[in-house]
Nucleic acid binder design. Sequence first.
DNA 1: CTACATTCGTTAGTGTCACGAACGTTAGGG
DNA 2: CCCTAACGTTCGTGACACTAACGAATGTAG
Lengths: 158, 158
Amino acid sequence: MSATPEPTPARLRAIPSRLIAGVAAVADRLVNERLAAADARKWHFAVLTALAEDGAASQAELSRRTGIYRSDMVAVLNELGDAAYVRRAADPADRRRNVITLTAEGRRRREHLDGLVTDAQRELLAPLDPDERSELTRLLTVLTEHHRPGHPDPRDPK
Amino acid sequence: MSATPEPTPARLRAIPSRLIAGVAAVADRLVNERLAAADARKWHFAVLTALAEDGAASQAELSRRTGIYRSDMVAVLNELGDAAYVRRAADPADRRRNVITLTAEGRRRREHLDGLVTDAQRELLAPLDPDERSELTRLLTVLTEHHRPGHPDPRDPK
DNA sequence: CTACATTCGTTAGTGTCACGAACGTTAGGG
DNA sequence: CCCTAACGTTCGTGACACTAACGAATGTAG
């Protein structure tokens, strides 16, 4: 069991990057389906949650928290602003920045979307027991931490 | 540990679907970078590998094996055909079908790309030990098997 | 045998998303 | 004061997932 004489069967189905891409597609579909029913997309949820968890921030800061490119952040904030879920105000301390603030409606909206997203997680992880779920989360977190701008490879500190 | 009094901490960073999407993006980037250096894309590798592992097939069959939409398969096979990695011939037994066959050059090409893809997997999974790698693969396989057209929910056999 | 549904390959088109280029504005450091 | 860098913004690109529709061929029910 420890020494497999076979060279590398490496079945297409067992290639990690393909497995992950497949599961990611399923997860995205599950989340999007539910959010679409509430006329929202995952970016909306990500931005609202980032604001709820760590407070008001500039657009660039929100980009870093959520992983959304700052170019794409503009449109998301336009939509959230049009719906009065966030407010966009100039930062008096640094006039390059906009300060994005979560409104009361935005907070309610976030809680609603959170329920939908949580449902999607449940359906996604349905076949796993609690231990397996936390182990999966742990492994994915390790990978996420490792492949982070600045940490990818200590041999190339540039 | 079993009863968490907190309502829903649910940190944005810990949402499985977001973790998976992030890791999938990293994995895709790693694979694409390497394949691009060989002027290939992941579809090429997937099709060549499907042919090498399970033999010649029709385009629709390749679609199912690889997960590529049959609409997109056309362009991929055009490119692989132009490079003489595969041959496309009419199926005499069913004249709707094309039979796609892997050529000798295609087989060499596949082995080359396989090396690149394997390197990418190594880099992706670098922070995990062998046990963790197989556990991750196992968990992802469980999820993949569960969320498969026809198996999504036994409560809705339709 | 005829009629109908289904499969296949193909073309064209849509929407999402990640990402880069460039620009004007503003801030901070030498 | 100049230079660099960060910020918000606009525009554009390319990969990818997916749908719609088509003609040709096949299988099947009546």
